[in-house]
Structures are given as structure tokens and as C-alpha cells.
Amino acid sequence: MVPIQYFIGLSAILFTIGILGVLIRRNAIIIFMSVELMLNSANLAFITFARMYQSLDGQVFVFFVMAVAAAEVAVGLALIVAIFRNKQSIDVDQINSLHG
């Protein structure tokens, strides 16, 4: 059996990559995909711990995360489409009207 630490480490690496995607990329769709990646890495950690504790609750939680992610994607992509309609762009740096 692979030690639990490895799975957690992998999860952390994936999560960091997701964060970097959010912070570095300017394309709204890629930012959104990075968010999905972060959710996925969290799911991986959940499953790992469920295996560790021999408890199905973690897996059920992943199931709910998936449902939320599905909903989030639907709304988020709709938002991106709406923004694109207004700005003719999906560059998040263009949307800075809140600047001081």
C-alpha cells in the first residue's frame, strides 16, 4: 500500500498548481479551470483520508463537492459568457473598475 503521505503530498502539489493558475493566468476560463483543479485536489485529500479512517463519509462528501462543482461551473460559465457580452473580452485584468 502506498503511504498516505504521498497522496497528501500529491494533493498539495496539485492544489498549489491550481492556485498558481488562478493567480498568474489572466484568461477567465483558465482561472476557472484552475479552480476546478483545486477542488479536485481537495477531493483527492478527502478520499485519501476516507481510506485511512475506513469511513465512507469522506466519499459522500466528495459526492456533494462534485454536485456543488457542477452547479458552480454552470453559474460560473454563465457569468463568463455574460461578462464577455459586456466587455467583448475574458481578460480579468480588463475588469478593474473597482480600483481605488
Binding site: 500529491l10 496539485l14 498548481i17 493558475g21 498568474i24 493566468r25 484552475s34 483543479l37
Partner: peptide
């Protein structure tokens, strides 16, 4: 793990 990290970096 290598495939996952590589593909994630590719995505990024």
C-alpha cells in the same frame, strides 16, 4: 502522480 502533475502544469 507524474502524469497528474505534468498535466496540471500543462493546463497552467
Amino acid at each position: 502522480a507524474i502524469v497528474a502533475v505534468t498535466s496540471a502544469l500543462g493546463m497552467l
